[in-house]
Design a protein around this nucleic acid. Sequence first.
DNA 1: ACCCAGGGTCATA
DNA 2: TATGACCATGGG
Length: 216
Amino acid sequence: MRLKSVYDRLYSEYGRQKWWPADHPFEVMIGAILTQNTAWTNVERALDNLKAANALSADSIINVKHNALAKWLRPSGYFNIKAQRLKDFCTWYVEQGAYKQLKHKHSVALREKLLSVKGIGPETADDILLYAFSRKVFVIDAYTRRIFSRLGKVSAEEKYDVLRLMFEKELSAETVKMYNEYHALIVRHGKEVCKTRPVCGGCCLRTICKRQGVKG
DNA sequence: ACCCAGGGTCATA
DNA sequence: TATGACCATGGG
C-alpha cells in the first residue's frame, strides 16, 4: 500500500480542503498553538476574540496583560497555559526578526528554532513549517497514527520523528502543496469517518483497510 | 455523566 | 526511556 494511493483516494472522496484557514502566516502560527489538544471550533472563537480586540499581532500579545489575554483565549481551553505560550512565542518571534527574517532560514534550522520555544512541540512546529512557511514537512497527528495503523502501514505507538521521516521519504517526489493537502485530508477523514469510538469500515479506504469492523 | 478534540511540559522511577 | 498528572472549554 502506497501513501500516494491513499492520498488519491482521499482527494477523490473529499476534494480540496483549503488549509490552513487564516488570513496571514502569523495567524497560522497562533492557531497552531491554540489548537493543541483542542477542537478547532473553539480555537476560532478565541481567534475571533483576538481580532475583535485588534490584538492578533505579536506586539499586542507581548504587551497585553496576562489576564486580558487569558480572557480572550478562554473558549480554546487551557487558557492560562496558552496565554503564556503565546507570549513566549511572540517574544521569540520578534527577537528573531519576525517572518521577514525567519523565512530565509533552512527548514531544518527553522524547525530546531521553533522546537526551542517552550510550548512548541513536534506537531505544532511542523504545522507552522508547512502551513505558515510552506516547507515540505509532513505533519504527524493523532489522526495520522489512527488511520495508518488501521491500514496496517505503521504502529500507532511509533515515535513522532520516525513516522515523519517515513512519510517524507516515501513522499519525497511530491510537492509542498501535496503535503498541505494530504494532512488536511487526513484530518477531514479522521473527523468524519475514522473516529475512535465507531467501528471502522465502509469508508473510501475500505478496500485497503486491514481492520474492517475493528474498534479503536 | 462521560469522552474527546488539529499537544506539550514536567515530575517521577 | 517511559509512564502519569496536569492543563480547561465546548460539543456529542
